[in-house]
Amino acid sequence: MPRANPIDKHDLRRRALADSALRTLGELGYARSSLREIANNSEFSHGVVHYYFHDKLQLIVYCVMQYKQTCVTRYDGVIADATTPDGLVAAFADKLVETIVDEAPMHRLWYDLRSQSMFEESLREAVGQIDRLLEEMIWHVVTRYSALAGVAPAMSPNTAYGMLDGLFQQALLGYLSGRAEALDALREQVRRVMPLVLAAV
């Protein structure tokens, strides 16, 4: 078995730290988290966390980037398995609901970070990268839907992303507020708005 080189070991440790930190970050959010708080809620000491990440900002950006890179691949199966436009929309909406139920704290952290980027310039590049990653994911769904419907998209990738992301964020807030009907509302809203990406205006 090949031995990991020092760079690989360093990255593996950073990944392990990030996985551990995500739990605390998801619970406390950006403003209330510190490297010491994160260390106190993980198996790693404060010194170890600080060795691999210079500050809280670097750790949080790394964590969210790692999470979102994994998250976007979860829709690959939905796209690959779809055989009808309606079937794709239903499966896509179900997957959106599933990820809210299973990973609400992680999505809350992402929206927290994106809001903070309005005030902290050092966050903007990373937030922009993640936004583009999510926009590409949504556009893969849209182009598959378009192909199945036999109609070209009538809206830009940015517009489609903004529309669906807005619905997702509203549903997440409703779910976090204890409104169980927010999830069924998200399914219905996705079913209603997806045809708009193909409708010429």
Score class of each variant (00 low, 15 high):
Pro2Val: 06
Arg3Trp: 10
Ala4Lys: 08
Asn5Asp: 15
Ile7Cys: 04
Lys9Asn: 11
Ala18Leu: 00
Asp19Leu: 10
Leu22Gly: 00
Arg23Tyr: 12
Thr24Ser: 05
Leu25Ala: 06
Gly26Lys: 02
Leu28Tyr: 07
Gly29Glu: 01
Ser34Arg: 01
Glu37Gln: 11
Asn41Ile: 02
Glu43Ala: 11
Ser45Gly: 15
Ser45Arg: 14
Val48Met: 00
Tyr51Thr: 07
Phe53Thr: 03
Asp55Gly: 12
Gln58Met: 09
Gln58Asn: 05
Leu59Phe: 06
Tyr62Cys: 04
Gln66Ile: 00
Gln66Asp: 11
Lys68Ser: 04
Thr70His: 15
Thr70Phe: 14
Thr70Gln: 14
Val72Gln: 12
Asp76Ile: 03
Ile79Arg: 00
Asp81Ser: 10
Thr84Pro: 00
Gly87Glu: 05
Gly87Asn: 09
Leu88Met: 10
Ala91Trp: 02
Lys95Ala: 08
Leu96Gln: 05
Leu96Met: 14
Val97Glu: 12
Glu98Arg: 13
Asp102Arg: 11
Met106Tyr: 15
His107Asp: 06
Arg114Trp: 13
Arg114Asp: 15
Gln116Met: 12
Gln116Phe: 06
Glu120Cys: 13
Ser122Asn: 15
Arg124Lys: 14
Ala126Leu: 12
Ala126Ser: 13
Val127Phe: 03
Gln129Cys: 14
Ile130Ala: 07
Asp131Pro: 03
Leu133Val: 08
Leu134Gly: 01
Ile138Gly: 00
His140Asn: 13
His140Ile: 05
Val142Leu: 01
Pro153Met: 07
Ala154Phe: 07
Pro157Tyr: 00
Thr159Tyr: 13
Thr159Pro: 03
Ala160Gln: 04
Ala160His: 08
Tyr161Arg: 07
Gly162Tyr: 09
Leu164Thr: 09
Gly166Asn: 11
Leu172Val: 15
Leu173Ala: 13
Gly174Ile: 11
Leu176Arg: 12
Leu176Asp: 13
Ala180Asp: 11
Ala180Ser: 15
Leu183Met: 09
Ala185Cys: 05
Ala185Ile: 12
Leu186Ala: 09
Arg187Glu: 05
Arg187Cys: 07
Glu188Val: 11
Gln189Lys: 12
Val190Asn: 03
Arg191Ser: 10
Arg191Gln: 02
Met194Thr: 03
Leu196Trp: 05
Leu198Cys: 08
Val201Leu: 13
